[in-house]
Design a binder for these strands. Sequence first.
DNA 1: ACAAAAGTGTTTTATTTACACCCATGA
DNA 2: TCATGGGTGTAAATAAAACACTTTTGT
Lengths: 229, 229
Amino acid sequence: MTNSREYFKSAISVDNVVFGFDNGDLKVLLIKRGEEPFLGDWALPGDLVLLEEELEDAANRILYDLTAISNVYLEQVKTFGGVSRHPKGRVITVAYFSLVNKNKLNPKASMFAKEIEWVSVKSIDYLAFDHFEIMNACLAQLKQNLKLKPIGFELLPEQFTLTELQLLYETVIGESLDKRNFRKKISKMGIIKDSNKYQTGVAHRPARLFCFDEDMYRKAVEEGFTFEI
Amino acid sequence: MTNSREYFKSAISVDNVVFGFDNGDLKVLLIKRGEEPFLGDWALPGDLVLLEEELEDAANRILYDLTAISNVYLEQVKTFGGVSRHPKGRVITVAYFSLVNKNKLNPKASMFAKEIEWVSVKSIDYLAFDHFEIMNACLAQLKQNLKLKPIGFELLPEQFTLTELQLLYETVIGESLDKRNFRKKISKMGIIKDSNKYQTGVAHRPARLFCFDEDMYRKAVEEGFTFEI
DNA sequence: ACAAAAGTGTTTTATTTACACCCATGA
DNA sequence: TCATGGGTGTAAATAAAACACTTTTGT
């Protein structure tokens, strides 16, 4: 068998597709590259994984560096290993996506990026490296999992209206839903609780504010419940 | 920023969970390790990825080496990067699973393995390295995707009976299905075609043989059909 | 009083489930 | 002729879809 030392010549990176939701618009956090290659192009935030660092830790580190937040929803999506995807050598990258409440953070220039911006997913048609392909893979997985796991809440403020929740689903999945049927479905699940608060300062009847009830969700799952939109 | 040359010290491997179906039993192809570490333990077939080799090519190579077959269904599942998952250094492994028609091949000792065996999934409770965890991740994804994509056929001979197909679903998903309802659902999809042949040599009324109709499946998908069991 | 979004049930339609007997073959 | 699995339809229950008006607030 070939001497395995021959092979310890690759690098591992992590790229993190950070999704945020903003009033009917799904956005991702992009950085403008400050060095070659792809100088000046928009790219996904990512970095090489340290030799003694777990993959997930790297993904969290990247996000923390840009936003100073931690404990966000993080999901591994796919690994991209194209031989010539990086000009400096063999770099395999593990793609993750994160879901954050966009309103509660303001990304800042950092070690990784002088310029950083929330960009509407639908306006993106190119990114540095193979990052456009990576973003699309993450978007596809988000669409799929949004229907099968209660992760939509991660993109909303802690308290949200049912209309906001519905708009989130409509935006990401890309089809419009019936208001009454949507509410019926959600409330039948019994996994959101009424906060007994209301919107303020809106020029119409104020909506009730709800929050995701994680305890209830866990109990329901134990009893055989499976989330599905 | 740290000099990136510091990081080109990792190795990438691919592990391939090869599933086969055998008369009500889901099996995986395991090899017995012929060297340290984990000498003598059962493990997944896998190998380091060559510096100029695509990940998928590596997965196919491993399978071809063991079975001399190619063009099988292959799906990337997850990447495992635990810092100390391999005693010889940082080895990130990308897990794939393959679906093969177990009856049409006989695995043979090879470059990778002196001993190789089909082992019933339900009898496995330990494997070398983190391979047990890897196998379980692949099994979970197989279960999920079997319901959402027409990949079950990959595990069967080209021609199969509806009872065989049903047994496959029952075995992998782990719940029993109603015969008439199952047949109704499958035939309404219009993606399998009657071969006009029958079983022979069985001590009961011989069953019709069907095959998966990939053209029909593609046409149906274009018209908005989505497979679901 | 008007504009704007919130909130709320019923009917219709489609889908899913439950269920039992006759058929063709080999032994 | 018996044992074995193959093959088939209908009715009931459940879930999904369609649909319109009243309420509450700010301006």
